[in-house]
Each structure stands twice: as structure tokens, then as C-alpha cells.
């Protein structure tokens, strides 16, 4: 039987442990007084905040506040951190919480908070909910910023995903967190993360394919 034992699915297709190591290295150096490392770390923390805020929470004015929050919390955290390897998941949890807080304060959009915070408690029984308008439509600053960053094609494909799925795509596919880390950040089980990531990939492929055909 023609069975290759060497050719396999790429086990690291979307997990980049090296990314986490970069953060851990910067945290260690910054804690030891390396000013350049501190500067880089603070820039990265804000970049993470921007991407998460815009893609998952989707409110451009909030993104600047969430970036500021990530900046200050990272700055304060560096001197006290015990486990540099855990910094990245801490950062994403922090950013996620900051996004949720911002949205809770926007009283006109209570449903949006639910759809991100409690993916099982809102929308369909499989944890999905209707895509929010953020990434879907309008000509607001979000759409312009998302188009500039992702390109129109990928933005529209991501827009078709329920927010809880979009969050997993961002964390796992874009930022390169491991399944375990995504579970830590979101509070989901690893099984749930994998199931949702798979569904999200199927949806993304269909959306990208239909744009090709269009």
C-alpha cells in the first residue's frame, strides 16, 4: 500500500510558539532595564490591542483607548511579572477585557457584549450569532481601517463570521496562539476552540471562494 509515513499535515501550520518566545524575551529584557526592549514591548502591546479591538470589537474610536490601556497595564506589569512565558496570554486577556468594558459602556449596544462574552448565551444554539455590523457594512472609520489593514477581500470574509469565531481566528490564525493559549484567553475549552476554529475556516474558505467566483 502506498502509505507515506514522512509526509504529514503541517503540525505547525497555524501555531507559532516562536511568537510567544519573542514576547517572553522582550519581557525579560525590559524587566532587566533594557530600554529598547521596553519600547518594543510597549509598541507590540498596542499593536495587539489595535488588531483585537478593531477586528473583534470593531469600534475604531475605542481602539485608541484600548491601546492606551494595554500600554499602561503592560508598563506596570513588566516590573512584577513572574512568568514571562505567560505574558502573551495575559496581554490578550487584558485587551479582551478592556474591549468588553468599553462596549459595556456603550449602552446602545448591549447585545454585542453578550455575543462576544458569552458565545453560548446569545444567538443560535451552536454559539454563533448574527454578524455584527462592524465588519460587515457601513462606511465608517472601522471599515476604512479594516480595509487598509486586511484588504477588502479578507475583511469581507471575516465579516461573515460570528464575533466569537472571529475572535478565535484572530487569536489562533493571525496572532499564532496555541489552542491551549486561546482557551486560556477566552475561557473556552480546547475542544470548543478547535471546533469553532474548524467551522470558521470552513466559512472563511467559502467566503473567499465565492469572492473569487464573483
Amino acid at each position: 500500500m502506498d502509505v507515506s509515513v514522512t509526509k504529514r499535515g503541517n503540525p505547525h501550520l497555524s501555531s507559532t510558539a516562536a511568537d510567544g518566545d519573542v514576547y517572553a524575551g522582550l519581557v525579560r529584557a525590559a524587566a532587566a532595564g533594557d530600554a529598547t526592549a521596553m519600547e518594543q514591548l510597549l509598541i507590540r502591546a498596542q499593536e495587539v490591542a489595535f488588531r483585537f479591538s478593531l477586528l473583534v470589537c470593531g469600534h475604531a474610536p475605542d481602539a485608541e483607548d484600548v491601546m492606551q490601556d494595554a500600554l499602561m497595564r503592560t508598563y506596570r506589569r513588566v516590573g512584577t511579572i513572574k512568568d514571562p512565558a505567560a505574558f502573551r496570554t495575559w496581554l490578550f486577556r487584558t485587551v479582551r477585557n478592556a474591549c468588553l468594558m468599553k462596549r459595556r459602556k456603550r449602552v446602545d449596544e448591549p447585545a454585542r457584549v453578550e455575543s462576544l462574552d458569552e458565545p453560548h448565551g446569545f444567538g443560535h444554539s451552536d454559539g454563533t450569532s448574527a454578524p455584527r455590523d462592524v465588519a460587515t457594512g457601513g462606511k465608517g472609520p472601522e471599515e476604512l481601517a479594516l480595509n487598509a489593514w486586511l484588504g477588502r477581500r479578507l475583511r469581507r470574509a471575516l465579516a461573515a463570521l460570528p464575533p466569537a469565531y472571529r475572535m478565535i481566528v484572530l487569536l489562533r490564525e493571525m496572532e499564532g496562539l496555541s489552542t491551549r493559549e486561546v482557551a486560556d484567553v477566552t475561557g473556552m475549552t480546547e475542544v470548543n476552540v478547535k471546533t469553532r476554529l474548524h467551522r470558521a475556516r470552513v466559512m472563511l474558505r467559502e467566503a473567499l471562494g465565492s469572492e473569487d467566483a464573483a
Partner: peptide, 10 residues
Amino acid sequence: RTTGLCRTAA
């Protein structure tokens, strides 16, 4: 390709 597209965007 889809995953690659996402990684590139990041």
C-alpha cells in the same frame, strides 16, 4: 491558503 492569508495579515 486561507490560514496563510490570515498569518500574512497579522
